[in-house]
C-alpha cells in the first residue's frame, strides 16, 4: 500500500512511503495508527482529524477500507492565497 504525504508531513516524512498491509487491506484509521507508531514524533499530526485522508481523489472517513494495493494520500490543513 502506498502512502503519500503533502505539506508539513511531506517535508518531514517524504512524499511517498510503502507499508505492508494484511491481505484484507487497512482501514484509514489503521493506516494512521501504524504511521503514528512508525513516526512517533508526528503521531499527533497523523491521528488529528484536521489531517484529511484521500483515496482516488476523494476525501474518505477513518472507517474507509483501502485494499492492499491501494493508495492513501494525507492532506494537512490547506493554506492558499
Amino acid at each position: 500500500m502506498n502512502i503519500l504525504f503533502f505539506g508539513k508531513l511531506g517535508d518531514r516524512i517524504g512524499r511517498e512511503v510503502s507499508i505492508e498491509p494484511p491481505p484484507a487491506g487497512f482501514t484509514v484509521r489503521e493506516v494512521r495508527e501504524l504511521l503514528a507508531s512508525l513516526y512517533p514524533d508526528l503521531a499527533e499530526d497523523l491521528t488529528s482529524p484536521s489531517l484529511k485522508a484521500c483515496v482516488e481523489d476523494a476525501i474518505v472517513a477513518d472507517e474507509f477500507r483501502v485494499g492492499a494495493g491501494g493508495t492513501v494520500e494525507f492532506f494537512p490543513p490547506l493554506s492558499g492565497g
Binding site: 508539513k8 511531506g10 517535508d11 492532506f75 490547506l78 493554506s79 492558499g80
Partner: peptide
C-alpha cells in the same frame, strides 16, 4: 485561502513554518 488544495510554508531567518 481555505479551500484551495495548497500547502504554504514560510522560510524565514528564524526557521520554517507551515
Amino acid at each position: 485561502k481555505t479551500d484551495a488544495v495548497l500547502w504554504k510554508r514560510e522560510d524565514s531567518v528564524d526557521g520554517s513554518r507551515w
